[in-house]
Computed example of a mutant assay.
Amino acid sequence: MTTERTGVATLKGNPITLIGPELKVGDQAPDFNLNRSLVEFASLKDFEGKVKLISVVPSIDTGVCDTQTRRFNEAAAELGDNVVVLTVSADLPFAQARWCGAAGVDKVVMLSDYKELSFGKAYGVLIKEFHLDMRSIFVLDASNTIQHVEYLAEMSEHPDYEKALEAVRGLL
């Protein structure tokens, strides 16, 4: 049975439904199988032993998503080799690669949830009405235990960048 969460998120004040569980600090992060390209995939195992900052955006081609991804790309350069910053969206891998090239973003790993939206369902961020993933942040320690989570209540707002980065720095 699929969990539907209502009354927890909006888009410009209009209610949206999130599919999947609400993950909490202390939970073991669900594994995922996301596209790096049309033929290459990534799972949590690919980032084993690293602290993971997972930045989820609805679509890379929108203003807040652009800013969020650029902000974490800048931070990734300073966080060191024990940290990986992953940006997850339902955009096609082609669109993600095009955007990264145009934006000069080269420190984050772009991963696409377009095929089965399985990340969105497992992490509780799939927006039923749009088949996109809701803006959110997850910080996982090297053992994939969630140490910080932020589900935004309003899709068009920015996450708390500093709080997420503090959580990452606290694990180093």
Rank of each mutant, 00 (worst) to 15 (best):
G20E: 07
S143I: 02
V108I: 09
A90V: 13
N33A: 10
S89V: 01
L152M: 06
R70M: 04
S43K: 12
V83N: 11
E4P: 03
A167W: 08
V83T: 14
S143V: 06
D133V: 14
G63S: 14
I54P: 08
E162N: 14
F130H: 14
P58G: 09
E116T: 15
V57P: 00
S156Q: 15
K24P: 01
N82F: 05
L86V: 04
E157V: 11
D141Q: 05
S59Y: 08
R5Q: 10
A95M: 09
Y161T: 10
V57L: 05
A97N: 12
D31V: 00
G124C: 08
R5W: 01
D133M: 04
V125R: 00
T3N: 09
R70A: 09
L165R: 08
K52V: 13
I19E: 12
S136M: 04
T145E: 13
A167F: 07
G104S: 05
E4A: 12
A103R: 13
N14Y: 07
P58H: 08
V51D: 13
L132S: 12
A76N: 11
V139K: 04
D133K: 00
V109A: 10
N73K: 09
E166M: 11
G63R: 10
G49V: 03
E116P: 08
A103N: 11
A164D: 08
L86W: 02
N35P: 00
T87W: 10
I16F: 00
L53T: 11
V39A: 12
P58Q: 09
S59F: 06
D27P: 01
L18V: 00
K107Y: 07
Q28I: 09
K50Y: 04
G124I: 00
G104F: 01
G170Q: 12
A164P: 03
V108Y: 05
L44W: 01
S43Q: 08
A95T: 15
L140F: 00
G101M: 03
L92P: 03
V105K: 12
F94Q: 14
V57D: 02
R70T: 04
E4H: 10
G170I: 07
D66I: 01
G13T: 06
S43G: 11
T17P: 02
P21W: 03
I127K: 00
P15L: 04
